[in-house]
Amino acid sequence: MQLLANALIAGSLAALIAGGLALVYGTLGVFNLALGQMVLIGGYVTWWLHQSLGLPLTVSIIGGLVTGSLVSWLTFELFINPFYKRHRFLPLVTTISLSMILDAVILLLFEERPLSILPGAKHMLEIAGVRIGQEHIILILLTILLLAIFAYVLHSTPFGRKIRAVVQNDHAAMSLGIRAFAMHRLIFILSGVLAACGGIFIGIDHSLTPVLGFPLTIKAYAAVIAGGKGNFWGAIVCAYLIALLEQLAIGIHWFGAFYIPAGYQQTVALLVIIIFLLFRPDGIFGSSSRAA
């Protein structure tokens, strides 16, 4: 049970980041390699507002989200929009350079010291033998709520139908009068907001350091690819699944004989995914037709 709680904490974080990424990949076909840095910016700005300026936590979080959306909007206009229609691999290069720029900016503004939005121990609760922080419960519930809102918008509103149409085929969608490029921009900014949520999550759960960016990007991609390219729900389920696998790998006394060394935690989880993809190359939830 404790393992499950641990996996929920880690998985919610990964799901926030991977969900936005899957939408962007599904609609724009673009790899955004600066995603991890966009995550950090959301977290760092929240830290700055809360710890340096002393604003209340909720205001700081809103500030972090707004900054996250601004950064992703600028990213879209400067690093994605001029390029991605020419060749879908061009943003690969531009976002790598952006990630380096942002790394340097973060280092310059916030220095390499670790920063924690809420320092100190969490307020722990014990529920049926599972110890979990109040903050964690709130973070998990908020993530699920956010995803539920997303699900509703995506599947039950006219706006969501437009998004799904663009994901399936943007040219066909345009012929039906949907402004696909405007949708692209919107989806990219949405992914930036989700990423900023992830950054705030990290800042509250433990601490922000400038080197976190790239590993976050890699993990989110693992979930997206395992979930089936561009499959929003697939990515989310896989984010939780990878987190659970990671916890099980090192938390279970395998066959009553040994533990897998903790250094192999991520390796084992990703290995399982690779084996799965050998049998289902379209991803665990992938199908031959693209769907959102």
Binding site: Q2, L3, N6, I9, A10, I202, D205, H206, S207, T209, V211, L212, P215, E246, Q247, I250, G251, P261, A262, G263, Q265, Q266
Partner: peptide, 13 residues
Amino acid sequence: EIVEPGTKDFRTL
């Protein structure tokens, strides 16, 4: 247990 540098989640250990 030995974990990779940068690990932030030790809950399962």
